[in-house]
């Protein structure tokens, strides 16, 4: 009983702190600056990157608009503009800028954006497989054996590498094609996600649709990482 009361009180305190200006204690009505004393306000650490950049949780993003928003917010928060301000304001500026930069970097890149969204929504995804499907796994294992063989052979001056090299290069092309297909499927799912996400009244069928999209995206992203890593390995070894 006591415990519960304590938790709820600390939650109210937190909300109070968030809606109050750290400087003049007036209620903050402005977005980033106090409307009373014009001091910069800290961005909430619990804010997700979409909210931070004023975006709905959708995967199709107008990158030009995103960039403009990022530049505009950078002008509000960058430490360069707080050099002559108080220590507190400088600390807030540093923290806000760091959060903003991370948010922008994550959302700018479509793959990182999808990874982030899946992570954000993870609570609603059940039974996610965290290892690659068997066929991909076997393929990667056999490729790694070939790579090992190639590395061992290339350290011997007399070895004839042409055949092995040709095989690895063709494997690389196949895998790169595969990566492109995965990405293209991923971008199709962006549209599906956005379509269900904008529904005002989420029905049971929409909720399950969302879950299946998230699950497929997560699998695609994880498989893509495996494929990309082995491609990088191939490029580094064979060229």
């Amino acid at each position: 009983m006591d415990q519960v009361a304590k938790v709820s009180r600390s939650r109210t305190e937190l909300q109070m702190a968030r809606s109050m200006c750290w400087h003049c204690q007036s209620e903050v009505a402005g977005e980033y600056f106090c409307e009373q004393c014009v001091k910069v306000q800290p961005l909430s650490k619990d804010q997700d990157y979409f909210t931070c950049l004023g975006l709905p949780r959708l995967l199709t993003i107008d990158t030009n608009a995103l960039e403009n928003k990022f530049y505009e917010m950078s002008r509000s928060f960058h430490p360069d503009f707080y050099q002559t301000k108080t220590d507190i304001e400088r600390t807030i500026s540093l923290g806000n800028s760091a959060l903003l930069n991370t948010a922008y970097r994550t959302l700018k890149d479509p793959v990182q954006r999808a990874e982030y969204l899946v992570r954000l929504e993870a609570g609603s995804v059940k039974e996610i497989r965290n290892h690659p499907p068997a066929d991909l796994f076997e393929e990667i294992l056999s490729l790694q054996d070939d790579l090992e063989e190639f590395r061992a052979a290339s350290s011997q001056p007399s070895a004839d590498l042409t055949q092995l090299q040709a095989k690895l290069q063709s494997d690389r092309e196949t895998l790169e094609q595969r990566q492109r297909e995965m990405e293209s499927r991923l971008f199709d799912l962006f549209e599906t996600w956005d379509r269900v996400q904008i529904q005002a009244q989420p029905t049971e069928s929409i909720r399950s649709k969302k879950e299946s999209v998230l699950k497929e995206m997560r699998e695609l992203l994880s498989n893509r990482t495996y494929v990309r890593n082995i491609v990088n390995d191939l490029v580094a070894t064979v060229g």
């Binding site: 950078s74 002008r75 960058h78 503009f81 050099q83 002559t84």
Partner: peptide
């Protein structure tokens, strides 16, 4: 120029 930005003289340029 960067020194001027830091001292509040120039406000229209920002380096990221």
């Amino acid at each position: 120029i960067q020194a001027d930005i830091l001292s509040g003289g120039t406000t229209d340029m920002l380096l990221l």
